[in-house]
Design a binder for these strands. Sequence first.
RNA 1: GGCGGGUUGGCGGAGAGGUUACGCAGCGGAUUGCAAAUCCGUGUAGACCGGUUCGAUUCCGGUACCCGCCUCCA
Length: 464
Amino acid sequence: MTSIRLTNTRTRSKELFEPLDASNVRMYVCGPTVYDRAHLGNARPVIVFDTLFRLLRHVFGADHVTYVRNFTDVDDKINARAAELRAAGDARPLEEIIRDLTDCTIEWYHADMDALGALRPTQEPRATEWIGAMIAMIEQLVAGGHAYERDGHVLFRVRSYREYGRLSGRSVDDMIAGARVEIAPFKEDPLDFVLWKPSSDDLPGWNSPWGRGRPGWHIECSAMAHELLGDSFDIHGGGIDLQFPHHENEIAQSRCAHPEGGFARYWMHNEMLQVEGRKMSKSLGNFFTVRDLLDQGVPGEVIRLVFLQTHYSRPMDWTAEKARAAEAVLRRWHSLVDDIEPAPEPAPEVVAALADDLNTAGAIAELHALANAGQAALLKSSARLMGLLTQDRPDWLAPKVDLAPLAQRLAEMRRKAMETKDFSEVDRMKSALVAAGVEVRMSRAGVELVPGPDFDAGKLQDLA
RNA sequence: GGCGGGUUGGCGGAGAGGUUACGCAGCGGAUUGCAAAUCCGUGUAGACCGGUUCGAUUCCGGUACCCGCCUCCA
């Protein structure tokens, strides 16, 4: 069996991956807060962990991997957006606006991530459907002395978890010295974080032992991971920005609530996305969504290939030039594998590259090698392992049109021109074809016309 | 201020303590009426300074610069 090696953030080293149960490999990845379209940065963990999911399914079997990715549908950003909508004239009750907003955003998210070739996770729990599990976990933490109630809030007592800060390499004392933590009067310690907070009547809330309220952000992942994957599971993933405090807090909660379990054994973090060399942010004006790119005609498959060209542990720069180059590569590969039956197994070199800490760039180099060697069937099966070339002649490629009559006419014109030495007619037709986005291939053997990236059937009307 | 990541040829971007990454672009050639496409060939790379070593771009230490997280945005 292929042995997989993964860089474990927890130990800061590349380790052999050995699942607790090879018949059920379990992975949890932090999903989106659903209040708006996913931006391009949101796509990175999706593509990275989808690739890992595919690799795990390949190695352990498609039915032996459980991949859980949550939807955070209770959050103050959602409440704020809903309040905006109401202020803008939406007369429905807040809860209804929120349900509609989150439902709609989840639909968008699915559509956008599907376009990137990402498989749906095995389970996609919504936080609001697991409030009971969260309350139960908080009760356990309170009972165990790891949490305390203050002014309707329940707070996690960071000092009660000795290893707090280990994942992110921080010490509690250093962080307090850094003083960039919210000071709230009801906290015993500035680093203590909220497990439960009270909701006023105009906010969503659930009844709890501490009154009507809503969960803090971190508890949902702990509760849902526990319910769906157990006390101990294999992989926990997410963006590096979540390492602290989110994942640190998850660990503290989970380990304290279920000391018998080890929570996640391998922690994986993807580095951040940049755009044209700068952080993507609204203030820099380089902020855009996956849907924006798709609408501009950048195919999801192209986005995926660009992402996979950079190792997940490195910052990745999105540039228009990369998208252009990736599209050219995919065009070539598609023309090579169309109508070819994929090989039963992917190439061992590609699997080996992926198994080496998800070396997607190395795997792509192997795909190039297969393409150069004319190994179309292996190229297809190997690319598919990475979620590429999954579709024959996808929509974004030029439609298959019959240009044979035009080719014949051009061939005839050329034959005559060869005799008369007057190529002006031939050149005129050739430029017209090129203007319509057709690639003109003339050789001794004959004339071949291939629709290119800018193919425009309308411009061919003049030639008919 | 605390923590973490990075610096590879014109550009993008990997692996490996000693032997071609790979892709794009460029250059030379084949081919072509001319092109395009295709094929063949082609690169003086490894921020800087030390150390370890027979040998380092690859390991260790330091310096510089860049980036991220700690703060609503992943």
